[in-house]
Design a protein around this nucleic acid. Structure first.
Lengths: 217, 217
DNA sequence: GTCTATAGCTTGATAGAC
DNA sequence: GTCTATCAAGCTATAGAC
């Protein structure tokens, strides 16, 4: 960040604190007061920089979204180039979508982890769908179109459903709710996410190929 | 519903209203006042019957949990009997887990739909994990053990991860967040859930079989 | 840009009448 | 079991000094 401009740091502090508290307590469970205290900032400053609470929330969602959509786009284009005009192998598309997210949760530090927790909750709620859509719909459409090329026997609804299966699985494990700590076979060590990712890609890819089989449905 | 005992109706009204408002607004976003108004009941009555708000929430989560765990258990036992001592085919286990949930969301009426929406959100949050665990852990363990028999090449972590993939996918689509209405190929008609289920079972089953392959990982 | 102070409202919970 | 009435605490948002 910019030492000449401390305002940026303040705004970043606020966004980080809001992200963390929204992730653990939800939108209504995290008060602006709590966020201000966590950010070591005065209550009124949050309203000054971000407006009403809903706008603050939207700012938190938006902040990291561009990184993911850009990164996914880059990965997809590389896969497209490697395919030389033929349909991209499903596995490559799945990987292009999933990896940027996992990489940040694994290596990005606590902010990215909190973002994942937060997104996992709002993705399953109707309330914030407009905000999520504004950030992610365009990118999703590109992936869905690409998938249609690679699983040509699937109906539009099947491709869309399968895409949602992938997202649901991704968010459920990246939310790190603690479920792995109580069920046997799991650990408290979140570097397991690396091996979960190594399972998820073939798992989802095989799913896509299965519903693409001609005798399906 | 017992016409001799109107108390049961009152309590049911409260649980139904709470379920609906929790599903759409989250725990903190739904006030006891809103719930009382929706249930057409006086504010104080909710506290009288259910105690503090957290207990009301837990009552809502618990109410329908037993139906699912019982129903899944029955389906699993039938599959086990049909397998005659051999490992149950993965697809049968997946179906035994998923079908009771889908069936209720499809045919159970608005209460069950609201329950699904609510569970989709809290399953991805750490906060309510103890409550969810109390209701579902025992049943989950049975399914995980059974899956281990059927995908014997998988590590414990892989089985657990795959189980979470399945749950994430299930909840994401049963939450009916409205995402299907904006992306092409989807409709507003939630009887599509029937065909989503028909895709999900082979999708997830193929995933399990893939990560069970000897050369995997 | 940052602070203090506060207005105005909503919240969860309960005491007490019936 | 159900109601009315109310309290203390917390909430969002903003006005106004610096």
């Amino acid at each position: 960040m910019n030492k000449i401009n401390p305002v940026i740091d303040r705004k970043t502090q606020i966004l980080d604190a809001a992200e963390e508290l929204f992730a653990f307590n939800g939108f209504d469970g995290a008060s602006i007061r709590d966020i201000a205290k966590r950010a070591e900032v005065q209550l009124a400053l949050i309203g000054y920089h971000f407006g009403p609470k809903e706008q603050l929330f939207e700012s938190v969602v938006t902040r990291r979204a561009g990184y993911f959509t850009d990164c996914r786009q880059t990965e997809l284009e590389e896969a497209r180039a490697a395919a030389k005009g033929k349909p991209i192998p499903v596995k490559k598309i799945v990987q292009a979508y999933l990896w940027p997210f996992f990489e940040r949760v694994i290596d990005g530090g606590p902010g990215w982890k909190n973002y994942a927790k937060m997104m996992a909750q709002i993705a399953n709620s109707r309330r914030w769908q407009p905000v999520v859509g504004k950030c992610y719909d365009e990118s999703s459409l590109i992936f869905i179109d690409e998938l249609k090329q690679s699983v040509p026997n699937c109906s539009d609804l099947t491709v869309l459903s399968s895409f949602q299966f992938m997202i649901g699985a991704m968010l459920n494990v990246c939310a790190e709710t603690g479920r792995y700590e109580v069920l046997p076979g799991g650990t408290k060590n979140s570097k397991d996410l690396q091996s979960i990712f190594a399972d998820l890609v073939p798992f989802i890819s095989a799913g896509f190929r299965e519903v693409n089989k001609k005798d399906h449905g």
